[in-house]
Design a protein around this nucleic acid. Sequence first.
RNA 1: GGCAGGUUGCCCGAGUGGCCAAAGGGAGCGGACUGUAAAUCCGUCGGCUUAGCCUACGAAGGUUCGAAUCCUUCACCUGCCA
Length: 425
Amino acid sequence: MSTDILDELKWRGLVAQSTDEDALRRDLASGVLTLYCGFDPTAPSLHAGNLMPLLTLRRFQRAGARPIALAGGATGMIGDPRDVGERSLNDLDTVRTWTDRVRGQLERFVEFDDSPTGALLVNNLDWTSRQSTLEFLRDVGKHFRIGDMLGRETVKRRLAADGMSYTEFSYLLLQSQDYLHLFRRHGCRLQVGGSDQWGNIVGGVDLIHRVERQSVHALTTPLVTDSEGRKFGKSTGGGSVWLDPEMTSPYAWFQYFVNVEDAGAASYLRYFTFLPPEEIEELEKATAERPHLRSAQRKLAEEMTTLVHGERATRQVTAASGALFGRGELRELDASTLSAALAEVPTADIRLNDGPTIVDLLVATGLADSRGAARRTVAEGGAYVNNAKVTADDWQPSQADLLPGGWLVVRRGKRNLAGARVQPS
RNA sequence: GGCAGGUUGCCCGAGUGGCCAAAGGGAGCGGACUGUAAAUCCGUCGGCUUAGCCUACGAAGGUUCGAAUCCUUCACCUGCCA
């Protein structure tokens, strides 16, 4: 197999750290390389950030390697130590449910077939659940030196702050054992992951070196943050942007990428799309020259939505975005266009007889979390109905305000839209 | 097990009896500018039937006219000692 994949990954900016690159190139050139990446079920869904390493698996597969996607049914029960402090353990049912859901998502991003590069999907609970403590301590624990473990950055920070449980301290051993297991069982010689996984990955590399006398590889993708240092994939509201359409609607997903800052759009195209370099460079140039057209953002949003939600969803959300963000006359939209567009955003049913005010509309549609927040929005000049600013918090819609199909388009701020469907009273 | 220190709003953090829904910072939210960017500036930032009331400073009790602030017990965290 070709080693061009490494050059491509570098061009895309997807390589943060790696072990001996020449050695990896040699392994890549000598046959079908097997690599893996693990995903812990820390939530009911993967989020946008998980796509970095997950799509990297796919890129390797397309280049002729065999990917193993690992769902962390075991590691998810322990929790990778993080700076913010000790995690609270999720109960077993939760972990099991989340593992199943994550598995389901993982299998959509790599290809399964009978060829030598056909993907594998594994769950590390399968080789850890029946392992005894004594076995674990003797076979795995013996190879780890406490001094090395204490020297890890995360551990040092945690010890300096709130301390850390033995449980989380042991996480490294579990993940290292996974790599060893996959090496023995499937000949896996490369583990990829986010750059925060470097220590865990290298732990496995060292373990394999100690017990199998073999050199295997590690490669991490960069941790992506925006200009304010926010972790990529955190929506402006603070929550994550999820792959699950029930948790983040395709419309919200699309909007997240449309709103990416200029500086991010170019690199995200490289990280997350499979577009050829020429096209990406073209879009980068377009952004530099005519930034207001947001062509990179639009293309990014379309690609990402198609990747995760499919082409049909993309058509629907682009149409909805066009209609609702046209800044044109909403009244000129016909009923079916408007209904289709509003189907992509949150909606609420109201009755004019109830005498709903703008505050009620904002709360009912979920655009405001509370009546107080809704009043604040009105007072701040951020409330709109049918693109017209509403300045009085006792404003009420009337029959004349209704758009075709009996809709009111409610907006908070520049881009938070919802529909209120007026029921015949 | 002993001793000491700690637990404050989304996060960090000030606050040692009334002037505390709680300083300050960050995040978030809205506005201005622009391009559904970035930066910057301004405003806002527990809830409600909003001149008032309710909930809130780890939990539960207590002292007091009045407690985030004092006392008791409990839980958890950190450090030192065993």
